[in-house]
């Protein structure tokens, strides 16, 4: 039971990490980046190349991966979001473009890195440690701690800083934001770069769990969107809570029902959660007054 809870929390943290990055882009552009799962996969691939294949020390490799993936995310913005202008609500072009970019990323990864999944060493070694009678990898603790830190960071940045205000403003209107003297373009780029950095970190954290391969985030990516929606898109507290909740419920459901139906259960939970509280657990519903 507790073992299941622990593994549910680890998976949940990973969903939360994806949801956080999805949120940051949503907060500023109002779009969902459907290529995010694949960006995380690229993060894992680059980390594998830098740290495992080239033998670069872990921290330096981590930084290099973050920079590389941030650049990829910015390129993604220029290729799939920028062409559809500032008022993204009026077009669905970005939807197809980001979905397509995801497939392109997967195929590039297949071509460059091959199709066979590869192992990635867990942070803190592969010796199991026993805490309160639960056996876990030090890596699992790292996943929980880092996710919590990133969620806190975003909570502060988005909720309490002027940058956070500017990000939220950009999502309302690029032109009004410009009238405040804020370059909405720079804000959007900052957000894409930040989402890339989190994707890189998520990639490194996921790798030892899912192994590194072009398809590693196929279902995880989808659950990341789910976590973001359950929590209320654009809300970092919600993304964190939504991710953990999804992971834990999934793990508990699996221990009670056949694991083969776990995905169905996970998505059922999502549908129920969304229909009961469409704005998300932490989402703010406001009515517009004239």
């Amino acid at each position: 039971m507790f073992q299941a809870l622990e593994s549910g929390m680890v998976m949940g943290s990973i969903y939360a990490l994806l949801a956080l990055a999805i949120n940051i882009i949503y907060s500023t552009t109002g779009i969902i980046n459907f290529a995010h799962g694949e960006i995380v996969m690229l993060g894992a691939m680059f980390a594998l190349t830098f740290i495992v294949t080239s033998g670069i020390p872990f921290l330096l490799g981590l930084i290099l991966t973050c920079i590389t993936v941030a650049i990829v995310a910015v390129i993604l913005y220029y290729c799939t979001v920028r062409p559809f202008g500032d008022k993204l609500g009026n077009s669905l072009g970005w939807l197809m473009a980001t979905l397509g970019a995801g497939i392109v990323f997967t195929n590039i990864a297949m071509l460059v890195f091959g199709t066979q999944p590869k192992a990635f060493p867990p942070i803190g070694g592969s010796e199991l440690v026993k805490i309160f009678g639960i056996k876990l990898l030090p890596h699992d603790i790292w996943v929980l701690v880092i996710t919590l830190l990133i969620a806190l960071f975003f909570n502060v940045v988005l909720g309490k800083t002027i940058l956070g205000n500017a990000i939220k403003a950009t999502s309302f209107s690029h032109s009004v934001t410009k009238l405040m003297g804020i370059s909405s373009q720079k804000i959007v780029l900052t957000c894409f770069a930040m989402s890339g950095i989190i994707a890189a970190i998520a990639g490194i954290l996921i790798s030892p769990i899912t192994f590194v391969g072009p398809q590693m985030t196929a279902t995880i990516g989808l659950k990341g969107f789910g976590a973001a929606i359950i929590g209320g898109v654009g809300n970092s507290k919600g993304a964190f809570a939504g991710g953990l909740l999804l992971g834990i419920l999934e793990a508990l459901a699996m221990t009670q029902v056949t694991p083969g139906y776990k995905d169905a259960i996970a998505f059922l939970i999502m549908i129920i959660a969304i229909s009961i509280k469409p704005e998300g657990i932490f989402g703010v519903a406001y009515e517009k007054k004239v």
């Binding site: 299941a4 593994s7 398809q215 995880i220 699996m254 694991p259 083969g260 776990k262």
Partner: peptide, 13 residues
């Protein structure tokens, strides 16, 4: 014991 291809958390199995 059944599971879905590509499942990551195999603890229940």
């Amino acid at each position: 014991c059944s599971y879905n291809v590509g499942d990551v958390d195999m603890l229940p199995v």
